[in-house]
Design a protein around this nucleic acid. Structure first.
Lengths: 217, 217
DNA sequence: TAAGGCTTGTGAATTCATTCACAAGTTAAG
DNA sequence: CTTAACTTGTGAATGAATTCACAAGCCTTA
């Protein structure tokens, strides 16, 4: 039984950590799918994901009950359910803002396309880069960012500009109507509550390692 | 008063989320330092970091009491304390394994050097890349990885190889004595408990955004 | 049909993290 | 010296996430 009327009307807020694990489970399931396995238990899923079987079952239970007692989960069915839950059944349109090295690395990253994320264009303010291509992705003048957002309605903006320009770009794209941002700038970003912002902060990860190496034994 | 005898003998395990916030506080403090401000309150620090003043004070309280009641914290002193806590007072030696686009982006990333992370070398298995330079960083044959780890004793290995090779490289570098890894591969990695592993998983972040965009209203 | 072996789904218990709320300490002003 | 205005540091309270533990259901074998 399911306490929710539908996936789009979640009663409880789902924790970020839960969503991240669902994403990991999906990756393992795809692996199992490729190897032709048809069912999997929460225990096996847990071992792969470095968590516990109770955690796996609890995570899934927020969205329904997808398994069979005594048997486990059907690999293709659970994979399908997770794709649905994570919203991967459709195309997501992406703009990259910042055509530096990180932008270039992302433009060629196969994981984007594989999961339905289509990169429409990249933006930069340097005349060296404008008009060129980044692995098949056109680099456009950042002057036209707002205009293009209105025309092409990207769902997600990936930010790879230097830290001191990141907040300014956030303000611009939010004003133009973007509601999801993935930033690689090492700064804290501020946006309205209805805009989803994720930040990948390398400096923070490195300092986490530095801390771990320093404070142990 | 401090319930710990020294920073290297923490009684309580410090949560990952706490360390990440400390890292953020340090960034703001450096900003304040550059602007010549001499004191700051937990409230101001909180506003910048998108948290609460109680959280800031609690985070700091795990390590000692660094503020003055009625006044706040001395900016340079607190910055210094945080650098010490995070282990940023020394040089950290880094190998990059994988000289693809992401490896290249990291090789030129200024944030590394700025915080005392020195990139000693990069490794790859492609003869196109071996012997070349990645923004001043020599690309070496991955065949020599173990030998070089023993010789040059890097503290941290940054992994930017394709997902299907990541675990193999982890096993190799762990066996060779490395105790901290920062991975950009979109896979779950397994390592002994005394090895600190952080993973930056772009696919997971994107799926988090996809989930957020799908499940709202 | 019955028994044995497995595995799910989920309330309850526990552990962990955040927020509250206030005594204690500091500064500045009169 | 006294008062007023602040701000820290921290136990206690609350809230959130994880783990426990077991009834309920499914499959296989005989």
């Amino acid at each position: 039984m399911n306490e929710f009327t539908s996936l789009t009307h979640l009663v409880k807020r789902i924790a970020d950590s839960t969503v991240r694990r669902l994403s990991a489970y999906l990756r393992f399931l795809e692996d199992f799918e490729n190897r032709g396995l048809s069912t999997i238990s929460s225990e096996e899923l847990a071992k792969r994901g470095g968590t516990t079987s109770a955690q796996v079952r609890k995570d899934l239970s927020f969205f329904g009950s997808f398994g069979k007692r005594g048997l486990g989960y059907s690999v293709p069915e659970l994979a399908g359910r997770l794709r649905e839950i994570l919203g991967l059944g459709r195309e997501w349109r992406v703009f990259i803002v910042g055509a530096g090295k990180i932008g270039a690395a992302l433009a060629q990253y196969r994981g984007f396309r594989q999961r339905g994320f289509t990169i429409l264009a990249a933006y930069d303010n340097s005349s060296d880069k404008i008009g060129k291509k980044l692995d098949g992705v056109a680099v456009r003048d950042i002057e036209h960012l707002e205009r293009d957002i209105q025309r092409e309605k990207p769902d997600i903006v990936v930010l790879t500009v230097p830290g001191d320009q990141a907040q300014k770009v956030v303000d611009r794209v939010v004003k133009a109507g973007v509601r999801a941002i993935l930033s690689f700038a090492p700064t804290q970003l501020h946006a309205p509550a209805d805009v989803a912002v994720k930040t990948v902060n390398m400096a923070m990860e490195l300092e986490g390692l530095s801390f771990a190496l320093t404070n142990r034994d």
